[in-house]
Simulated assay, not measured.
Amino acid sequence: MATGITTAYAAESSSTCDLKCQMTELPAKAETRTTVTTGQQTLTPEQQAAKQVAESPRYRAFVPSTYNGSVSFPLVVVLHPSGADENAPFMARQLAELAEKKGYIVVAPLGYDSTAGYGSTYPIVQTFAAKDGMSGITIPNPQSNYLSEVAVMSTLAKVKREMNIDASRVYLMGYGMGSIGAQHLAAKYPGEWAAIAPASGAVTAASYPFSALAANHVAALYIQGEKDRYTPANAVEDLYNQARRAGVDARLIKVPNADNTNAWVGALPQTFDFFSNHRKY
């Protein structure tokens, strides 16, 4: 199952979904008029869609050459920005190079599609430049947003089933829309992650349940490019400061000469170091 540094391993899709990913709740306004009975289950169209996404999540992964299945490896889940797909994170060669060097498996889920928001409904802090341009972060329709969350968590469950993953060393990061998704999934599933690293994307600090991270010992590394025109620096600083006040083991990195597209790349060495210093306990 090992690969070289410049390639990525794409596991075959599983035909089953574990109980956890099937039990993710539906959106509050889910359509329920049309149902289909499968065995003893009666499924709405939304449940049918969720089941299909959960059973065949689309993702790309990198497996270091030292992996042979006999020893558990740490896992990093990377969420792509709006308009991209599961291949986008691997366009940064440093990601696979560091994963190879430090012995990490890296997984990049598609989510439901290129613009679905990984389930987040937190208010987003952006400048006017983001609203006027093409690089801003927007929340998609509720159903696509929900299915994107299902896809990410199903990918995680699938990789855990099929590979020898160290459950105490599972990490989550993302940039742009992926940053918003990482913050949402960290708060909703805090038992899954040892640490997160959201970059170039901020939710409003007042709306975020930092207590969920603190109570479950989820560390947080906030990353901001000094030339980011879309995410205000003070919004990221607010997240960092409130996380610290809530008892989260948090750190803030400001990347010189980096914008919203490449700050996460510039911070990758520090990100892997941060992950290496944190285990779930």
Rank of each mutant, 00 (worst) to 15 (best):
A2C: 10
I5G: 02
E12F: 01
S15Y: 00
C17N: 00
L19I: 09
Q22E: 05
A30P: 00
A30D: 00
E31I: 08
T37M: 14
G39W: 04
Q40H: 07
E46N: 13
Q47P: 12
A49H: 03
A54T: 00
A54I: 04
R58G: 08
R58A: 14
A61I: 07
A61R: 03
F62R: 13
F62C: 06
F62Q: 08
V63I: 15
V63R: 06
T66P: 07
T66A: 09
Y67G: 04
G69T: 13
V76Q: 05
G83D: 05
D85V: 02
A88Y: 09
F90G: 03
A92G: 01
A96N: 14
G103A: 12
V106A: 02
A116R: 01
A116V: 02
A116P: 04
G119F: 03
S120W: 02
T121Q: 08
Y122I: 01
Y122R: 05
F128C: 04
K131M: 14
T138N: 07
N145F: 07
Y146D: 11
E149D: 15
S154M: 13
E162Q: 09
E162P: 04
M163H: 11
M163F: 13
A167T: 13
L172E: 10
A182S: 15
Y189V: 08
Y189D: 14
E192G: 01
W193F: 12
P198F: 02
S200R: 02
T204D: 13
H217L: 03
V218H: 07
A219C: 06
Q224I: 10
Q224E: 12
K227I: 05
Y230M: 10
T231P: 06
L239D: 01
D249G: 15
I253Y: 01
V255D: 02
P256W: 12
N257R: 08
D259N: 15
N262G: 11
A263L: 12
W264N: 12
W264Q: 04
P269N: 07
F275G: 07
N277M: 14
